[in-house]
Amino acid sequence: MMRMRGVTLVELVIAIVIIAVALAGLVAAFTRATRASVDPLLTQQMIAIGESMLEEAMLKPYTNNKAQEASRADYTDIWDYNGYPADSPVTDVAGNAIPGLERYRVTVRVSQVALTDVPQAQAARISVTVRSGNESLVLHGWRTEP
């Protein structure tokens, strides 16, 4: 009796279909992973921008001189940052745009809050919101009157 070796056309087609489905699944997984890998980079950049702005505001004195300064370079206390131009592009203190950060927007709010054992008139919360497209990040810091 003679034995036949090899594959039939039907077996070959089924094998090709199985391999194609497996490859399609792998490509979809790689595509999803590649898109998701950009998110941590954006988040890290938003954190760095927010921390920088929050630290800048926190280093100013608590006292309120009641006058809103026109330029960020002239800000003299934390209250000057309240309402920092809503959704303004990221700039340095002199107001110059920072190359590479055009897609990010920053907003700062300063409000009085009551803390444990600290009256509302002597405590402030500084909220920095950083936005990029549909993503947003909010950082908070608290200051009290010395």
Rank of each mutant, 00 (worst) to 15 (best):
M1D: 12
R5C: 08
V7A: 13
V10L: 12
V13E: 06
I14E: 09
A24P: 07
G25C: 12
G25S: 04
V27K: 11
A29T: 13
F30A: 15
T31V: 06
R32Y: 08
S37V: 05
D39V: 12
L42P: 05
T43G: 14
Q44N: 15
A48C: 01
M53N: 14
M53A: 09
M58E: 13
L59W: 09
K60V: 01
K60W: 03
N64T: 10
K66H: 07
Q68L: 15
E69V: 06
R72D: 12
R72V: 09
Y75Q: 00
I78E: 03
Y84N: 05
Y84H: 02
P85K: 15
A86M: 02
D87V: 03
P89H: 02
V90G: 01
A97N: 05
E102Q: 11
R103T: 12
T107N: 04
V108F: 01
R109P: 02
R109T: 05
R109W: 08
S111Q: 12
V113L: 10
V118T: 10
A123E: 00
A124I: 01
I126E: 04
S127K: 02
S127M: 09
V128M: 02
R131S: 08
N134R: 07
E135N: 08
S136F: 04
V138N: 09
L139W: 00
G141D: 00
W142M: 10
R143K: 07
